[in-house]
Each structure stands twice: as structure tokens, then as C-alpha cells.
Design a protein around this nucleic acid. Structure first.
Length: 524
DNA sequence: CTAGGGTTAG
């Protein structure tokens, strides 16, 4: 019976489509038309897509988006292209929104789509969705893909899920060196150095990225010496390997080591890039080496490194921290594009130089340009007021933080205000502020109070501040030297002798201080 | 025409 039916319908099919001379001509005609129609639409979509991705390459995201909205027909590549653009301009909410629009339009996501989605949820609250995205990936049978797999691994590592990380790895069908590197990197991000090292040792093949990943992992886990010893073993070091190690030294505040390594890098004929230069300038700023900073600046100009916001901000910061505020301002003014960090750096620089009024002027100019201040801006601004003796201005801006700008005052801001009152000799106001704080005082806040007491030889509050610090951190060097100073000035010599004795017994060392005069000199 | 691993600033 079944055979018969099938046969009969087959006959019917043959009869109507193939053997009916009457229907052949018009059918054929219509099919060709539809085919031509589809071909032109397809070509159209591809050319639209090409135009949109060209816009994105020139970072014209607005233009790309309006083109995307105008498209008569969108395919999966159109969506992937715009999703990738939105992802690059750090707009994860919009990525998810467009992704849902795509789903509603009935288009099925592919490997590209999911790689982008996974990259978008990194470092956002949306990363809790990673296991759900993983489930979706499995339903679409994309979990065996090397691309989706490594994107998934990175997402799991970012979400702090080690089990998810290894699961995603083992689901990849043909693991390549990139997949293995993602595993090493993921374990390192989770702080599992042993697992990472074991993975590295058992990898079927290693490239320079594998080595750099390992070095970077040890740096992230504060094992700088271990990182250096592995770095030394890399045979084909490239710019990134060098930069990772240099920036590692900067992160652990070993600025001179960073500069020495930079010299070795230049000697090894590896061309630094903007990442390298940023790190090196940070090292110069860290050890107040204006001379090396100037040399690095010249080198950036000489090699024609393209204009970059982060690089220029590093320059501004380097000059400001090395004492050349005019050069800092010159670089700052020459910047084509400035962002919040650039403004913060300039305002901080003026503050450090005691130019409170200039800091306030820049703050006003920044707001006029439409740049919204953040918590860092206020730390710099309040400390500028403190260093410039602008008590009333400081108070005004401290109060405006929450009311005008919706920024909650944190410990650092309170520390700035305590410092401001302390310097101005208004220690009663400083004490009052500490008592009114919505949280417990930290070392910085008590330290600021202690500094003010030292400046104005206030024994009673100074003891209170010293107690505050000692509760949190025993034998802090600043406490001893400051108390010694205060009591000395008040003529309480018996206490001074006692403190000096304690200082020696506990082997408390005075803190190191930097100077613009004795900055390190490096032969290039 | 679109996607995966290692690098920068306040």
C-alpha cells in the first residue's frame, strides 16, 4: 500500500512537472525569473555588507548602523558585521538587542554570531548568561568549532568558572594551538598556575603566543621572577612578548627593570609599538625619569607612531609626574581626541604641582566639552584643592559629587578631604569628617589625618590617627616617624626616645621617597 | 563581507 502511494505520487510529479508540455514553458519562465531575482538580491546584500564593514574599519559606527537599518534585505553576515561593530565600540546591551532582533527575524546564528556574542558579555554583568549561551551552542551543534570553543573558554574564564572552561575545551573536536593557548590563559586567569603550567607542558605544539601567555599568566599572578625566567627561554620573542614583560615590571613597580628591559628590546632590533611605548612611559613616570621620558617621546615622533589617545595620555602623565608640567600641557593641548582619562591625567598633574586653580579651570573646561567627570576626576580635583590650599573650593566640589554628578564619595575622596583640612590646619573639621564617614577609616584616611597633625604639631589627634593606622597595619613606618616628629616639636623627648628605640627594635624602615633631582639615568 | 589565543593610559 505504501509503495503504491509513493509510486503514484511520484508518477504524478513526473507527469505534471516533466512530461506536461503544456506547463513546461511558463514554469520554466517563472523559475528563471525567481532565480535571477534571488541572485541580484544576494549580490546586493553582499555589497551592502561590504560597505558596512568598510565603515567599521574606519570606525564610522554611526554611519554603519544607519546603513544597516536602511538595508532592504539582511542576511546572517549583515547581522554578524553590525554585531561585531557594536561589540568593538563596547556596547554590549545593543549587541544583545540586535541579536534578539535577528532571532525574531528568523535568522539562525552561526559560528561568527556566537563568537561575537560571547566576546560581548565579557566583563559585564551579562556574563552570568555564559552557561545558557553554551546550552544554545550545543543545541546548534557549534560546540565542536575551534572558534566558538575558544571564545567560550575565554568567557568561562572571565566568569570564574573553571569547570565550564575545561568542558568547553574538551568539546572542541580538532583542538589547535589556539585552543590550547586559551586553556593556559584561562587557568592563569583563574589563578590556577599549576594547571596552566601542566597544560603548557603537555601541549602538542607551542608557538610564541603560548610562551607569552605563560609569561603573562605568571605576571598576572604576581610571580614576576618566574615570569622573567620563562621570558628568557623564549626563542622568537616578538613585540608582544617584550611588551608583556616590560608592562609586568611596571605593574610590580620595578620601573628601572622595565627600562633596562626596554633597552635590551631596542638592541634586539624589535620595533616597539604603542603598547610598548605606553608601558615604557609609565615606567619613566614611576621612577621620575624625565630624561628617559624625553628620549622615548623623541623616539615615538621619529618612528612616526600614529596618534593614539592612550599613548598621548601616557605622555601627559609622564611629563606631569616627572615635573615638567608645561610639557604635559603642551602634549595635552596637541591631542586630537581627549577622553576622560586624558582630562583626569592633566587635572591630576596640576594638582601634583600645587596648581589648584589651573586644575579647577581644566575641570570647568572639561565639563564644557561635554565630558562627564568620574570618581577619579574627583580624587584628582580634591587633592588639587588640598595641595593648592583651596579649602572652600574643595568643600564645594566634594558636596557636589553626589548631588550634581551622582558619584558616591569613597574612602579615597574622604582621604583627600581629611588631607585638605589637615594641611589647612582645620583639624577639627578633619576629625568631624572621619566621624561622619559611612564606613570605617582605612590606612590612607588615618594617614592623611596623621600628616595634618604632623604639620601642625597636634599631639592628641596625632595619637588617635596613629592608633587608627596601627589597628589596621602594625608597625607602619610613617606612624613612627610622624609621631617622633610631633612629640619632638612638643618637647616630649622621653616619648621620642621610646619611639626611636621601637623603630630600631621592630626594624621598621623609613619609606622610600622619590625625587625629580635624583632620577635614574639610563644609557640608551 | 562577519568570528577564536598573548600587549597600553587617569
Amino acid at each position: 500500500m505504501r509503495w503504491f502511494n509513493r509510486h503514484s505520487s511520484f508518477c504524478h510529479y513526473i507527469h505534471t512537472s516533466t512530461f506536461s508540455t503544456a506547463n513546461l514553458k511558463p514554469n520554466h519562465q517563472i523559475n528563471t525569473d525567481r532565480l535571477t531575482d534571488q541572485t541580484t538580491t544576494l549580490q546586493n546584500v553582499v555589497s551592502w555588507n561590504r560597505t558596512i564593514s568598510k565603515c567599521l574599519r574606519n570606525s564610522q559606527i554611526i554611519k554603519a548602523q544607519s546603513l544597516f537599518d536602511k538595508m532592504p534585505v539582511k542576511d546572517i553576515v549583515s547581522y554578524n558585521t553590525i554585531l561585531s561593530g557594536l561589540n568593538q565600540s563596547k556596547n554590549p546591551e545593543k549587541v544583545c538587542q540586535v541579536f534578539l532582533e535577528m532571532e525574531r527575524a528568523g535568522l539562525k546564528p552561526n559560528e561568527y554570531t556566537l563568537s561575537i556574542i560571547l566576546s560581548a558579555v565579557l566583563n559585564t554583568e551579562l556574563k552570568v548568561l555564559v552557561p545558557q549561551i553554551h546550552a544554545r551552542i550545543i543545541c546548534l551543534a557549534l560546540n565542536a568549532s575551534v572558534f566558538v570553543g575558544s571564545a567560550l573558554m575565554k568567557a568561562y574564564a572571565n566568569a570564574g568558572d573553571g569547570v565550564g572552561l575545561s568542558k568547553a575545551f574538551y568539546e572542541i573536536l580538532n583542538k589547535d594551538v589556539t585552543s590550547w593557548n586559551a586553556l593556559v590563559s584561562g587557568y592563569m586567569e583563574l589563578g590556577c598556575m599549576h594547571e596552566a603550567q601542566k597544560t603548557f607542558d603537555t601541549m602538542p605544539e607551542k608557538d610564541v603566543v603560548s610562551w607569552t601567555t605563560l609569561v603573562n599568566g605568571y605576571i598576572r599572578n604576581k610571580r614576576i621572577k618566574k615570569a622573567r625566567s620563562i621570558f628568557n627561554k623564549i626563542t622568537g620573542k616578538n613585540v608582544i612578548s617584550w611588551t608583556v614583560m616590560i608592562s609586568g615590571y611596571v605593574q610590580s613597580e620595578r620601573f628601572v627593570d622595565a627600562l633596562k628591559l626596554f633597552v635590551l628590546m631596542v638592541k634586539s632590533d624589535t620595533m616597539p609599538n604603542k603598547f610598548t611605548y605606553s608601558s615604557v612611559l609609565d615606567a619613566c613616570a614611576g621612577c621620575c625619569s624625565l630624561l628617559v621620558g624625553q628620549q622615548v617621546h623623541s623616539s615615538i615622533m621619529k618612528f612616526g607612531i600614529p596618534e593614539d589617545v592612550i599613548l598621548s595620555t601616557s605622555l601627559v602623565d609622564m611629563y606631569a609626574k616627572c615635573g615638567d608640567i608645561d610639557a604635559a600641557f603642551y602634549v595635552f593641548e596637541s591631542m586630537q581626541r581627549k577622553n576622560l582619562a586624558s582630562w583626569n591625567s592633566m587635572i591630576g598633574g596640576y594638582g601634583r604641582h600645587g596648581l589648584g586653580k589651573r586644575a579647577l579651570e581644566e575641570f570647568e573646561r572639561m565639563k564644557k566639552m561635554g565630558v562627564k567627570p568620574d570618581e577619579v576626576t574627583f580624587v584628582n580635583l580634591l587633592s588639587a584643592c588640598g595641595h593648592g590650599g583651596l579649602v572652600e573650593e574643595g568643600e564645594k566640589h566634594f558636596d557636589s559629587m553626589e548631588t550634581k554628578h551622582g558619584i558616591q564619595a569613597e574612602a579615597e575622596h574622604y582621604a583627600c578631604m581629611v588631607d585638605l583640612y589637615g594641611r589647612a590646619g582645620q583639624l577639627d573639621k578633619a576629625e568631624k569628617l572621619i566621624k561622619e564617614m559611612p564606613f570605617e577609616g582605612d590606612v590612607v584616611i588615618w594617614g592623611a589625618l596623621l600628616g595634618g597633625c604632623g604639620l601642625h604639631s597636634n599631639m592628641k589627634l596625632g595619637e588617635l590617627a596613629a592608633e587608627g593606622i596601627s589597628r589596621l597595619e602594625r608597625h607602619h613606618p610613617a606612624v613612627y616617624s610622624m609621631l617622633t616628629k610631633i612629640h619632638g616639636e612638643n618637647g616630649a623627648w622621653n616619648i621620642v626616645v621610646k619611639l626611636r628605640k621601637m623603630l630600631n627594635e621592630k626594624r621598621v624602615r623609613k619609606q622610600k621617597a622619590g625625587s625629580w633631582v635624583e632620577s635614574p639615568f639610563l644609557e640608551m
